[in-house]
């Protein structure tokens, strides 16, 4: 699995949700050992991705222009 690549477009929420699903699956579904290991790796990568997103992100700002005036308040 190549974590950094397929994660580029993965949103925080989706990554988080997938991580939850992995934990859920590991807890209830009893996948094969091989699958367990690959889920484990995927989970680790997802958590790392989430942490990186949180640590490196910057709020982006977009201003609507149109009929609205920009009078001071």
């Amino acid at each position: 699995m190549e974590p950094s690549h397929d994660f580029e477009t993965l949103s925080f929420e989706d990554a988080m949700r997938e991580l939850e699903a992995i934990l859920e699956k590991l807890e209830t579904a009893q996948p094969s050992l091989e699958e367990t290991l690959s889920l484990y790796e995927r989970g680790q990568a997802l958590a790392k991705h989430c942490a990186t997103l949180l640590e490196q992100a910057e709020v982006r700002i977009q201003m609507l222009n149109g009929s609205n005036g920009t009078e001071l308040g």
Binding site: N68, G69, E71, G73
Partner: peptide, 28 residues
């Protein structure tokens, strides 16, 4: 939570025009 994108709909928040602008900003 710096993962957000902010869409600012500017509006006057006081004065006579404020109500109309606030409504328009919400609608936009």
């Amino acid at each position: 939570y710096p993962l957000v994108e902010v869409v600012l709909a500017p509006s006057a928040v006081q004065g006579e025009e404020a109500p109309l602008e606030l409504v328009r900003a919400l609608e936009a």
